[in-house]
């Protein structure tokens, strides 16, 4: 029979044992710590966008949809271009009709629900275009939330989606702070920009970079110190989107403004 003293002792031991997290029992070897510190990958793909050069022609969006087999008329796209117009009375207008697949061929801002705002030249304080695409974050929140291991990050930093493994729960679409993910209308799985993984892994540039007539988009390897993109990122004034989320996005912008969300 248990004595009261013994019973209390065992209860405390048991509770303490339960409170001990399982990870504390894992043995960490020096090799494991070294492997975590030394990043052996020779490639880390990053993107550089010069918003001064972008003219909003939308050729990048057109090329991306064709290259990556995204249904052309469905209102989903892996990359898109946003237009920002700040007027002299301090108002901000932004639009991206069809993701700018057909460019911006009117000065009327698409306010949604069939409403348009015609802004005259004299009213504009500043106006510019911002191309957007997947940031291939160093800490991708979309990958963390996947319950089935269908989305993941490769050794060279690109976040991919396994269409065979994706169950279409949509958690990743909700988790992305940049709104780059959507459902593919044909496969009904999560879809996103993957820096044209089939092209960059063969030494080519992405379809959007090739389609841009003005050099507003560039792709590079940040592990290569001689890569022009790396040089620009390390020596010039660049910024990223929503750094406050701690996702460490790897799409760098020249000429980003406070208005850009």
């Amino acid at each position: 029979m248990f004595s009261r003293r013994e019973f209390l002792k065992n209860t405390i031991k048991g509770a303490a044992g339960l409170a001990l997290p399982l990870t504390a029992l894992e043995l960490i070897t020096p090799e494991m710590i070294l492997a975590l510190k030394q990043d052996s990958a020779k490639t880390r793909w990053v993107f550089l966008i010069d918003t001064y050069k972008c003219v909003g022609c939308g050729f990048c969006v057109k090329a991306c949809k064709t290259e990556n087999e995204i249904p052309y008329d469905a209102n989903v796209t892996r990359t898109w271009v946003e237009r920002y117009v700040v007027t002299k009375d301090g108002r901000l207008y932004a639009d991206s009709p069809k993701g700018a697949r057909d460019g911006f061929t009117t000065n009327k801002i698409d306010l949604g629900l069939g409403n348009y705002k015609d802004i005259k030249k004299e009213e504009i304080n500043k106006a510019f275009f911002v191309p957007k695409l997947c940031n291939q974050c160093e800490n991708p929140p979309c990958v963390q939330v996947c319950p089935v291991g269908a989305t993941y990050q490769t050794a060279d930093g690109v976040v991919l989606v396994d269409r065979k493994w994706c169950i279409g729960c949509g958690y990743c679409i909700m988790a992305c702070p940049y709104g780059v993910r959507f459902f593919h209308p044909v496969y009904n799985t999560a879809e996103k920009c993957n820096f044209c993984y089939h092209r960059i892994s063969k030494g080519m540039k992405t379809a959007c970079v090739e389609a841009c007539p003005f050099g507003a988009r560039k792709i590079g390897n940040i592990k290569d110190p001689n890569d022009p993109v790396t040089v620009t990122i390390l020596t010039e004034r660049v910024s990223v989107l929503k750094s406050e989320y701690g996702t460490k996005p790897q799409v760098y912008y020249i000429g980003l403004s406070e208005e850009v969300r």
Partner: peptide, 28 residues
Amino acid sequence: VHERGYMYGWYRKGNEQEWKAVSIKYMT
């Protein structure tokens, strides 16, 4: 679990090849 560890690298390795096999349309 692959290169990026359990949090970011828990996946089917063969899928990388499937993405690399997508056909190239824009030849430049």
